[in-house]
């Protein structure tokens, strides 16, 4: 029984994605036009990078609800480091990116420290810090939306190479990076081990706290990159730059097939999940359905996906 469920769970996201594409293109052939496919890819760039960050945290059995706050924080740092509409930015150009990513990684590490050393459950630590990030961004930006005028940052969303926006290349690079981290680094293996069997990891002498903090920091760095892409697309920095991204990121990870209990799934599953979410979104737009229906559909898909991915008796205590 369990075996069939698992097999079904691993093929399911692919079937859902294929089914969605077929259904939408039958209803509206324009869906398959090159322009539209590029549009989907461009719209998926930031959500993919964000969902990859969330994937790492979920793989080790924790959760990060700080996506929107971390993005707001990173976006505000970005505005402070590049030429902005207020004229107060440092004008560092692309040199701002390492700073933004480092700041976002530190923010993530802080969540990890609170989670591990103060023993606050990760959903609460990240929820609280998410609001802290929103607050900091609000103060830094004076509660307003600050336009980003730096050409090199805007170019991430506007300039095209081979007819594809640069953001797509960035997202692809981050996907490759995430895959390497997951499969070919020590932290990647420990992260998966932690999600699969924490006691064994502890018993083998690994400092679990350091692993958790590092994973939260890596996730934070990914949220930072996602925030840069989202700000470039928006052409501005805003405390609300990540609005709605938490729901999208978590549902993409879960719908893609990564188990919330940790240890199974991964970055490629998340790619599928993001595509499902974004194809659904695009399909609703071109079919003329109101986009807010998406949240409801995703809500139902989250529940089904989590059900398919969790062992039947494993979660006797579901907190």
């Amino acid at each position: 029984m369990t075996v069939t469920r698992l097999r079904l769970a691993s093929v399911m996201p692919l079937l859902v994605l294929a089914g969605l594409c077929v259904a939408i293109s039958i209803a509206e052939p324009r869906f398959l036009s090159i322009d539209n496919l590029i549009r989907i890819a461009a719209a998926s760039a930031a959500p993919l990078v964000l969902a990859l960050g969330a994937t790492f945290v979920i793989l080790m059995g924790s959760i990060d609800l700080s996506v929107e706050g971390s993005m707001a924080f990173a976006s505000a740092i970005l505005a402070a480091c590049v030429a902005n509409a207020n004229g107060a930015g440092l004008d560092l150009g692309l040199a701002a990116l390492p700073l933004v990513i480092a700041a976002a990684a530190l923010f993530g590490a802080l969540i990890g420290v609170i989670h591990t050393y103060l023993r606050v459950p990760s959903f609460m630590a990240s929820l609280g810090m998410g609001f802290v990030g929103l607050g900091i961004a609000t103060i830094m930006l004076g509660g307003e939306r600050v336009g980003i005028v730096d050409e090199s940052i805007r170019a991430l969303a506007l300039t095209r190479i081979l007819n594809l926006p640069i953001s797509i290349y960035v997202a692809t690079f981050m996907l490759a990076l995430a895959w390497v981290i997951q499969n070919h680094t020590r932290i990647g293996r420990r992260m998966l081990a932690l999600g699969g069997a924490e006691q064994l990891v502890v018993a083998s002498g690994v400092n679990v706290r350091h692993v958790r903090i590092l994973v939260f920091a890596i996730a934070g760095a990914f949220f930072g990159v996602g925030a840069v892409l989202a700000s470039a697309r928006l052409g501005a920095s805003s405390a609300l730059v990540g609005s709605g991204q938490l729901f999208t990121a978590i549902s993409a990870v879960v719908v893609g097939g990564t188990a919330l209990t940790g240890g199974s799934g991964g970055v490629l599953a998340t790619l599928l999940g993001v595509l499902i979410v974004m194809v659904l979104n695009n399909g609703m737009v071109i079919l003329g359905l109101p986009t807010f229906v998406q949240q409801g559909v995703l809500g139902i898909m989250i529940i089904i996906a989590v059900l398919l991915n969790q062992p039947i008796r494993g979660l006797a205590v579901a907190k």
Partner: peptide
């Protein structure tokens, strides 16, 4: 169905927001 409460209510919250 034994889903963790934060994900169950995140999903139901999405449905309620849509409604």
């Amino acid at each position: 169905l034994k889903l963790p409460s934060f994900i169950a209510t995140l999903a139901v919250g999405g449905i309620a927001a849509t409604a």
